[in-house]
Design a protein around this nucleic acid. Sequence first.
DNA 1: CATGAATGAGGATTCATTCAT
DNA 2: CATGAATGAATCCTCATTCAT
Lengths: 188, 188, 188, 188
Amino acid sequence: MAGQTPRRADVRRNEQALLDAAAAAFVAAGVEAPVRDIAARAGVGVGTVYRHFPTRADLVVAVYRHQVEACAEAGPELLAAGATPFAALAGWINHFVDFLVTKHGLAAVLRSDSTGFDALHAYFLDRLVPVCGQLLDAARASGEIHSEVGPVALMRGVGNLCIGADSDPDYDARRLVELLVAGLRQQR
Amino acid sequence: MAGQTPRRADVRRNEQALLDAAAAAFVAAGVEAPVRDIAARAGVGVGTVYRHFPTRADLVVAVYRHQVEACAEAGPELLAAGATPFAALAGWINHFVDFLVTKHGLAAVLRSDSTGFDALHAYFLDRLVPVCGQLLDAARASGEIHSEVGPVALMRGVGNLCIGADSDPDYDARRLVELLVAGLRQQR
Amino acid sequence: MAGQTPRRADVRRNEQALLDAAAAAFVAAGVEAPVRDIAARAGVGVGTVYRHFPTRADLVVAVYRHQVEACAEAGPELLAAGATPFAALAGWINHFVDFLVTKHGLAAVLRSDSTGFDALHAYFLDRLVPVCGQLLDAARASGEIHSEVGPVALMRGVGNLCIGADSDPDYDARRLVELLVAGLRQQR
Amino acid sequence: MAGQTPRRADVRRNEQALLDAAAAAFVAAGVEAPVRDIAARAGVGVGTVYRHFPTRADLVVAVYRHQVEACAEAGPELLAAGATPFAALAGWINHFVDFLVTKHGLAAVLRSDSTGFDALHAYFLDRLVPVCGQLLDAARASGEIHSEVGPVALMRGVGNLCIGADSDPDYDARRLVELLVAGLRQQR
DNA sequence: CATGAATGAGGATTCATTCAT
DNA sequence: CATGAATGAATCCTCATTCAT
């Protein structure tokens, strides 16, 4: 129970090296990059990776925590920024898409049901679903959307639409997500 | 003397069993499902799989072909059925989603970028894109939709939304696809 | 019990086609050529190969029977030809080497102890050892050689020296066999 | 800090166990012995084999090296030991045969023409051919032998004669090699 | 704490051989 | 008799994960 950050300097250095290495490996080979590659990039043994991040999901979470946090914080900010709630929602979804599309293979893992990514799923849901829900509720309250779709379903759909967007330049996930969001406004 | 199809009844049965088994295996474990699993589902030895389908791509193509033909034929039929073009498009997309989700969960391969599936992608696109394009054009001509999204993008989006729909009962791909299709009507 | 040759014409034709095909396959890929290749070359099913030649050794024996017979018959002829017994032995060994060297991979199989080649070994020994033994005895009787090496050992040695002679043009098995034969004359 | 050899004792032990196991497996089943068998003989997992020797050739080379060095060093020693050059040559060949037959039965690989063993062949030749050549030259200079056979051919012949000597107690490779060596003295 | 060696499950592929048609 | 489809053992190789040092 030492708070978030380890006290020993070398340990902290190792952890940071691992995060950097993992980020680089994820870029190069996707979030399923071999553990050994990550360890090699960080200049440590594989055991050290496992010590710091018992599961791959833990590592992924750690690598992307900052960006997830930023995404989570963007929700209330957008809502408070003056535009309509629907515009805020659309803006936030944009933010989310940017995040997913730039992280090689992350979108695909987000929908993977293999155990071992549970921590990742949990973190994503814990952190972002409330934000998305708040935006959806606000847009619903303002009468801009009528759909009853919930935040989990919406995020899952957006996530799915982003699968493969990083590796195929001809695939424009953003446009399709726009369509999906536009669909929310439709009367039903 | 039978041209394309094998003459011996057991061989034909086996091939069909293999196709069914592969389809099921793809649903359960994706297009990269172990050959041994497919063989086991079909009740045959692995050698039999390799005899009928020397490469995995051959198998996937064969599994697809069956369904793809039915789907392709459904397009003109729906268009001729009397409802509006947009209704025909929506109906066809429904059909497509059924194909992807209910029966085979092949959505994942649609987006696979691994080489070796090129032949598969090509076939898929060759056969279905024109059908979808025709429906899109008709709906556009009738003034029901204004979006400029093309058939390739639309199908890819629908395909992506279907990923994982078979294995997760809480994920309602149809609803999200409805949203996407609804989005097509939006003014631009 | 119909004597050596089958009575039905088509069967005889098949057998001959198989012998030719096997000979060709042995040249191209060695005596361990896949059964399916041989069947394909003969334009028959693999089952037919097995019907005619239950084991690979049976096939090899059949393919080379003529040449083995010729080799066996050459022994007495050389002995009767007027030269010294040692010269006859040397000549016969030459004959034997020619046979082995021109049969891709046969020499290697001759020393293989894998069951399945038993028939081949047996045939070779049955047919050629007595011939070689006769020549050795004669040379010993004439006082030209003193070595006590027996025909089995000698043939085995010659066979071994021939291994790989077909695939490596730099390897001159004949010269080494000459050395071996020359060694027989040495006083002990 | 140890240069070539691994520092951890258990690793070194493992590597040696692997070399011994591979040598034994090669004797029993040839250089193409299943990796799993080698691992089992060494009491390790297959992964360990691959860690130490990424390719089969690496393993075979390593197994050879050990013995080859000893054999190479024996040449000059025998020559300096006082007997005639021919006796030294005969002694060295004996050593070589022991190496091939008694300890490892590696003779079969010496003649393997499968690519991937090129490095092995090269090493073998580089190390032993000069030694054998020196002995041959000396024996030729002393007038004890007259044959023009070179070291490569001689070694190849000896190697071939040793094939299968380990697995067949009735096959006396040494006697045949003696014959071959005796043949070197023959006038031509 | 860090290391990286060892493990072994997991998945692919080939081919000899049998046997239903 | 002939066919060739089916079988499945045998082998290869990769990596995630554990644990002795």
